[in-house]
Design a protein around this nucleic acid. Structure first.
Lengths: 215, 215
DNA sequence: ACCTGAACACCGTTCAAGT
DNA sequence: ACCTGAACACCGTTCAAGT
């Protein structure tokens, strides 16, 4: 015997074999799977196949499917690209909300996870703290802070959920086929004119409008 | 033989037996199940059990699980208790959003359905049309209408999703155990003072604030 | 003709048997 | 000791056999 078989190298090729399973490797594969074929396709068995192992091997690194999803959510939140702290409340809030929004846009499937499981990741706390501080610095009292926080957060939330589809208006139209112009004239007119409006632009504008009313 | 066995009456008791299955009966049972034990417990097999029949019998009335869920969503939207049309834009918008919000609150599980499947129910169209008309009457041009519509809708959406839990702040705290006061002083202070704030009150206030900025 | 049981191809997870 | 295959109790749905 020339080498230990217990790790790292294939006895036949000598090439560094796919590293032995670890939580990170499992998560990596899970992200790849869900990104390419969606959340429902992320099953323990499929994931095991992707990693070239049996389903039970995964349970060495993850306590079950729920644990896997929680870890994916945690990692997603931790990966948020937060801007440096700004003392200007508007700049601070814009930066934070934009970062959250951008993260959700990169992995839209997370939002449905958040919607059904909640977003109680430890790494969201710094974001919350910074938002509250910005509101405080803007002169909000506690009631105002609570209200403003809820308003901003819920808007971001709703926008994110809606944005992993094509937007409410378009989708309503698509799902319905052609709208009855006689019955819904204003809606039909909107759908006709609004083509090409950028979602992103809409989000940025509305966020500023929200901040106008809050600050 | 004294009576037909094909329908309506039990041959043994003569009492009107549970009516033969129909889409309505299936939906009724599905709502009951999901209301009492949650969305994941709504399986074709469980539903069949609830109705005292075999799983396959359901497929006579519903083309599959997706179809069942879509019908439940449609019915939920159709059951919205819309207020009479008002010519005052603020009153009209307040009434509509409040109605949507109230419907979601009565069956919070629908929101996760909406989040993953979208809300493309035909019965949402009148609501959309009325919202757009109210914005038009308030003097919005098309771009403003699109923006204001998205803002209002996304806020309602996000609020609804969040509200079937205990609210973001509380939940974050609950999920985390005790917050590190040193690390997150503003958050800790908020959590301490905010106890007892009514969600409903917060929603109404924020909606008015939103309308202030939109109208 | 209408209805539905058995069967198929999945799923998450337990548990005991492998090395 | 560490790892994992077989088995269990589910799931939605097909399909052919019942009445």
């Amino acid at each position: 015997m020339t080498g230990q078989r217990t790790n790292a190298r294939s006895p036949t090729t000598g090439k560094p074999r796919a590293a032995r399973l670890s939580v990170d490797r499992v998560l990596e594969a899970a992200f790849a799977r869900v990104r390419s074929t969606g959340l429902p396709s992320l099953t323990m068995r499929q994931l095991a196949d992707d990693l070239g192992t049996g389903p039970m091997t995964l349970y060495r690194h993850v306590s079950g499917r729920d644990d896997l999803l929680r870890r994916m959510l945690d990692r997603t939140v931790a990966e948020m690209d937060l801007p440096p702290v700004s003392l200007d409340p508007r700049e601070e809030l814009t930066g934070l909300v934009t970062a959250v929004h951008a993260r959700f846009r990169r992995d839209p499937w997370v939002v449905t996870l958040v919607a059904s499981e909640g977003l109680s990741s430890p790494d969201i706390l710094p974001v919350v703290e910074r938002m509250l501080n910005a509101l405080k610095n803007a002169g909000c009292n506690h009631d105002e802070m609570a209200a403003a926080y809820a308003l901003i957060w819920h808007y971001t939330y709703g926008e994110a959920i809606d944005s992993h589809r094509d937007g409410e208006l378009d989708r309503v139209a698509a799902g319905m086929g052609d709208i009855d112009v006689g019955e819904y004239p204003t809606l039909a007119e909107m759908l006709c004119r609004r083509r090409g409006t950028q979602r992103r632009h809409l989000f940025e504008g509305n966020l500023q409008r929200l901040l106008d009313s809050v600050l």
